[in-house]
């Protein structure tokens, strides 16, 4: 059942997508096995989004996921996907060269005691958007945990890019400035490196904007 090459762009899907189910409380066994005490893999994705040897523009992103009662979600797992410092993705669909060794992907497990998680990475560059627009630098995030029936997509933007935020095509369609703020990290400290805090609120007064993409 192949779609003929001259099919119009509005051809409906032939099959339904496999439905989602919660990742449950033991997601670490499968996705961060070293956190669960499994040592059988030679390599696993972790909190390093960019090659640690790349010292340029290094940053840390840290945060906590909170539920509707304000309690930290201690069994959350967060995935991150971002462009390199030039705004290029290591993917054939982008096709532009990326910085050597740049993978762009990270996977962080919340601390089972505190719920805090972090990524070590570099600042991404701006990425082309729809209709000739330029998207402000951002990191795409995906959150799963027990009680989350379908993974939650969101984006982290950086507080220094206010001028680019004004023209960012995604931020532009969030009319309420308080909701828009939920996608902008806060710069936490200077010193050896820069840390951006990005707390995610699944529900409640500060509910993060989640995306249907």
């Amino acid at each position: 059942m192949r779609i003929p090459p001259n099919a119009p762009p509005n051809t409906p899907p032939v099959l339904k997508e496999t439905p989602s189910q919660t990742a449950g409380p033991y997601v670490h066994i499968g996705l961060r096995p070293s956190v669960a005490g499994f040592a059988g893999y030679t390599w696993e994705p972790d909190h390093q989004i960019a090659n640690p040897a790349d010292k340029s523009r290094r940053i840390r992103i840290s945060g906590t996921v909170f539920d509707g009662t304000g309690a930290p979600v201690k069994d959350a797992l967060i995935e991150a996907w971002q462009a390199d410092a030039n705004g290029h993705y290591p993917h054939p669909e982008d096709g532009r060269p990326v910085m050597p060794g740049f993978r762009g992907f990270g996977r962080a497990a919340a601390d089972l005691e505190s719920g805090e998680w972090h990524f070590d990475t570099i600042r991404p560059g701006p990425v082309p958007g729809p209709g000739g627009t330029l998207q402000a630098p951002h990191v795409s995030l995906w959150i799963v945990a027990r009680g989350i029936n379908i993974g939650l997509h969101t984006r982290l933007y950086f507080p220094e890019d206010a001028a680019l935020h004004a023209t960012d095509p995604l931020l532009a369609i969030i009319p309420d400035p308080r909701r828009r703020e939920t996608l902008i990290a806060t710069r936490e400290k200077d010193g050896e490196g820069v840390t951006y805090r990005f707390d995610i609120h699944i529900q409640g007064e500060y509910e993060t904007v989640f995306l249907d993409i």
Binding site: G68, A71, G147, L170, I173, I202, Q203, F210, L211, I213
Partner: peptide
Amino acid sequence: VARSPRQPLLSF
């Protein structure tokens, strides 16, 4: 119940 967003998802 406590781990479900209540605002509509933003289509993009």
